[in-house]
Design a protein around this nucleic acid. Sequence first.
DNA 1: CGCACACTGTACCACGCAGTCCAGTACCCG
DNA 2: CGGGTACTGGACTGCGTGGTACAGTGTGCG
Lengths: 183, 183
Amino acid sequence: MERAAELFAERGIAATSVDDVLAAAGAGKGQFYHYFRGRDELAAAAVGFRCGQVVAGLTGALGGVSSLAGLEEALAGFAAGFEEMGMPGCPIGTLSAEVAGRNEEARLAAAAGFGAWERLLAGALERMRQRGELRAEAEPAWLATALLASLEGGMALSQARRDMASLRVAVEAGLAQVRAWAS
Amino acid sequence: MERAAELFAERGIAATSVDDVLAAAGAGKGQFYHYFRGRDELAAAAVGFRCGQVVAGLTGALGGVSSLAGLEEALAGFAAGFEEMGMPGCPIGTLSAEVAGRNEEARLAAAAGFGAWERLLAGALERMRQRGELRAEAEPAWLATALLASLEGGMALSQARRDMASLRVAVEAGLAQVRAWAS
DNA sequence: CGCACACTGTACCACGCAGTCCAGTACCCG
DNA sequence: CGGGTACTGGACTGCGTGGTACAGTGTGCG
């Protein structure tokens, strides 16, 4: 399943066959159909698995953030990582777009991944607010949604254009939105 | 090709076969391979065609906008249309994500679509600036990128969650960004 | 020891796919 | 009118696909 998550992420789900995954994993068909009902179930499981990996990485970067400077640093690191990976699109967003409307279970897994990401951002913002860096009226959940949407869109644009400029603008705009609520 | 654009948009490119398109269009294989080198060329052409349609629609909605109120109205209409369509994801973004990294020509077509959209937004913002509604220091191009990223991300989130709330937040956040530059 | 059973590899199947081929067909130009 | 040519439909091919069937294997338990 780890192999499946890798292959799905790098080639796309539709462009990866069960046989590809099995060959990469060194497993046979019998094994596969013993543990999965079919291709779609693997796809859903792999999306869930990938989201888990991504969210784990994000937790490392955002879990301890409790200041604007920390958030800026985390997002700069995120953008740098994205560039280093060759602007592959959002790891969750790409799968989500491919899967939404064709695989309900996988769609829910992707939505859960987005939810976890958003909660991570909201947590950091909430800590900023409690430390007095954000005004009391700031709404961490709302800001987190706005920030995540901005990041997601920035990645989509940068992927299509093969140019980091869009993501950088999106990050900066998201940050500006947060700063607007600074005390 | 119109049929191809429709089918690709509603089922995804990878999930649509050449035969499907031909059947929908009532055409034969000979005809197809007379006009296209193969599947990938059709995909690229269809993406370009779809982007043209979308941009044409957007031009109708944004081409005449020159005030904040007009922009708000246009974006509200956009969100309403998105909801009415059943939150299918961004018509350009979904194709773009599927095609980037696997079909260079199609990727460029999608990037051009994004570019046109962004220019439409930038034009509206520029007119707002010239009418004095935005401060002179406002940068329409930068704001347009930020706004487009926000919309794009909002659509991605709403698609995954089947819930308009995310897009609405993203639209509101993008608008807030613009208002921050109001005179 | 032996047997039952959960598990595994692989040969296999029917099917749908992209792409080829060719026998028409209609239209244009002389 | 007649012939060449640009175009068209559809049969066909080889291959990769998801899924099945089955024979084999090892392990735990009586």
